[in-house]
Each structure stands twice: as structure tokens, then as C-alpha cells.
Design a protein around this nucleic acid. Structure first.
Lengths: 191, 191
DNA sequence: TGTACATCAGTGAACGCGCGTTCACTGATGTAC
DNA sequence: TGTACATCAGTGAACGCGCGTTCACTGATGTAC
């Protein structure tokens, strides 16, 4: 049943995509490899033709999620500049749609506390992904290359990640709304 | 080997305390009941004399952690008022000591993404615990009872949780420091 | 206050189950001539 | 271009292991008289 190189590469992508969604919606530890392979339309035995270990899949799935988040942010920014660009990013990140769909959203919010205990490779990728997002935000702040803008962007991103995480933790819809709204109020118009 | 009521209550507390620390340092899913019981100086078989299920322990362990966090914050505030009180809370929360000791720190930062998938009881307790912390912060803001102060406190807390989480995720010490510092800069002197 | 008995905290073995990982096998793909 | 053979993607059974949970048992504690 050997497959063509093109098909094989396609299958691999499908596995990473399925893992990326499952890890974000159910957590890394709670998601089994059999579940991932099943979601990719395969049986679990074939996993090791594509990856060395679950850890490797975690790293690649995280990378997949972070690339997809950056693309989304670029899309919502479009041609907007300055405050309008920041506002678009903030509105999009703190939207109900994002809160209610962790599987396709920011991996820092959905796997944050698990990432802190991940292996070195994954944490390294997480650091680089975080910095790329910081850069994508600071670019739209006044004096975008400055240390102050970078610090501001770091804070905006951390704050949004915390707010989205907590908006998912609380079970009171009004409180969840209040968390998102307070973060929007404070982040959409940075100093 | 029946134990006195006092001893039994003491044992139960020890189990909850051990669970509280382990869940925060290794994650809920990654911590087994045998590990918890072992840390409490017992064998795993006795667990169900004290709790109905792991879920119940999770809820109680979370509660234990959140009470302990409130006590810590009360302690660092002491007699301080207004800005000084807020600054003390922020400095304490975003300290290296807190970042490097998740087992005794804020449960929202260490288990945030897992709490979002916890059962109803735990999420209900998480909501109440979050609100109590919000109240403990807003009390020190100008016009502390107002909706604006509450919103401000919600934002401060969410932002600090996000910053601490991310400071633990990244593997670059300088970036981790930058995350904590940017959050301190923005939170210590609220508008 | 002392005795007899019921209660139950804790132990350690066992339960079924799902985990990550390995492996023999199949058969289509890729390659060497 | 055609043939022969090596490669390897995917299957499904199996591995040892740790999980949450249950249970028979022990013996000190609590209680009823």
C-alpha cells in the first residue's frame, strides 16, 4: 500500500492539522495518537511512518497553529494602519467566535499551561512564535521599531492571551463577556 | 487501622494540599492519584475513603489554591492603600519567585487551559475565585465599588495571568523577563 | 467506667481500559537495468 | 519503454505501562449498653 510522495506529504499535513485542532480543543495530554490518526482518516499504527514521537507531533502541531494565527491576523489587518490595525487585531482576537472555537484559534490560549511544561523543542518554537506575533503587532504601533513599541506589543499580546483564557475558564456568560470587553477597552486604544 | 476524626480530617487536608501543588506544577491530567497519595504519605487505595472521584479532588484542590492566593495577596497588601496596594499586588504576582514556583502560585496561570475544559463544579468555583480576586484588586482602585473599577480590575488580573503564563512558556530568559517587566510597567500604575 | 461490637481509615492486590510505541505483513510506488 | 526488485505508507495485532476505580482485609476508633 505504498503511496506516492505527493500523497504521503498530503497525509502528513492532514495528521498535523488534525493534531493541531485536537490539541487546542482537548489539550495535549488528553488527546491520544489513535484519536489524532482517526481524525486524519487513518489507523494509529501508521503514525511512526511520519513522526518519531508524540513530542515531535506536538511541536509541529503547535507550529501549524501559530502560522495559521499569524495568517489570520494579517488577513484582519488588511491595509489598515496604526490604531485601526491594532483595533482590528484586538477585536478579532477577543471575539466570541475565537473564544468559542479553540480548535482553530490561538494555541497560547488553548494550551498555555501545557506549553509551559512541554519539551525544549516545543518551548523554543513557542518563544519564536510569540516574538513573531509581537512583531506583527508592534509594527502598527507608533515608532514601531522602538523598544517601547515592542514592550507595548508584548503586553497587549500577553493581556489578550490571559483574557481569552479566562473568558473560557469562567462558566458565567456575563462574566466571560465582561472579561473580553474589559480587555477590548484597554487594548484597542493603547497609550 | 481506623483513625480518629481529627487525624482523618488532617489526612484529607494533606491530600488536598498535595494535589493542589502537583496539579499546579505538573498539570491536572498529567498527575495521577497514586502520585498525589504518595506525596501525602499514603498508598493510593485509600483515596476513595476521602473523595468520590478525581474530579472532586480537582475542584477541592483548585479551591485550596485560590484561597491560598487570596491570603498571599492580602498579606502583601498589608496596610497599603490605593496605588501602593495595587503596586504591591502586581509586583508580587509578576515576581520571578512566582514564575519559578508554580506549585505554590496562582492556579489560573498554572492550570488555565486545563480549567477551561474542567467539569462544571470546578469551572463554577473558578468563576467565583476569579471574582473574589477581582474584588480584592478593585477595592484598591479609585471609586472601588464602581463598574469602571471592576472592569479595570478584571483587566489587570487577566493581563497578569496571561503574562505569567507566557513568562513560563517561553524558553528565552530575556524574553521571559521582558514579558514580566512589560506587564509590571502597564499594570502597576493603572489609569 | 468497662465491655462488646460496629464502624471505617488505610493497605495492597486486582479490575478494565487507553496510552505511546513496536512489529509482521500487504501491496502499490519508485528505481535500476 | 519494459521488467524485476527494493522501498515504504498504511493496517491491525500486540507490547508493557500507568491510569481511575474497586475490593477484601486489618485493626484502631467510636458507640451503645
Amino acid at each position: 500500500m505504498r503511496k506516492s510522495k505527493a500523497k504521503t506529504a498530503e497525509t502528513r499535513k492532514r495528521i498535523v492539522g488534525a493534531a493541531s485542532a485536537l490539541f487546542r480543543s482537548e489539550g495535549i495530554h488528553a488527546t491520544g495518537l489513535a484519536e489524532v490518526m482517526n481524525a486524519a482518516g487513518l489507523t494509529h499504527g501508521g503514525f511512526y511512518r511520519h513522526f518519531d514521537s508524540k513530542d515531535q507531533l506536538v511541536a509541529e502541531a503547535f507550529d501549524d497553529a501559530s502560522v495559521s494565527l499569524r495568517r489570520t491576523l494579517e488577513k484582519v489587518v488588511g491595509n489598515k494602519k496604526g490604531k485601526a490595525a491594532i483595533a482590528a487585531i484586538v477585536e478579532n482576537y477577543l471575539a466570541f467566535k475565537h473564544r468559542d472555537n479553540p480548535a482553530s484559534g490561538c494555541a497560547f490560549s488553548s494550551m498555555g499551561s501545557e506549553l509551559g511544561r512541554a519539551n525544549n523543542k516545543t518551548r523554543g518554537e513557542a518563544s519564536r512564535a510569540f516574538l513573531k506575533l509581537v512583531e506583527a503587532i508592534s509594527r502598527h504601533l507608533p515608532d514601531g521599531e522602538s523598544a517601547a513599541a515592542k514592550s507595548e506589543a508584548i503586553f497587549l499580546l500577553s493581556a489578550m492571551i490571559g483574557a481569552l483564557t479566562m473568558a473560557r475558564v469562567v462558566d458565567d456568560p456575563k462574566l466571560s463577556l465582561a472579561i473580553l470587553r474589559s480587555a477590548k477597552d484597554h487594548c484597542a486604544a493603547p497609550r
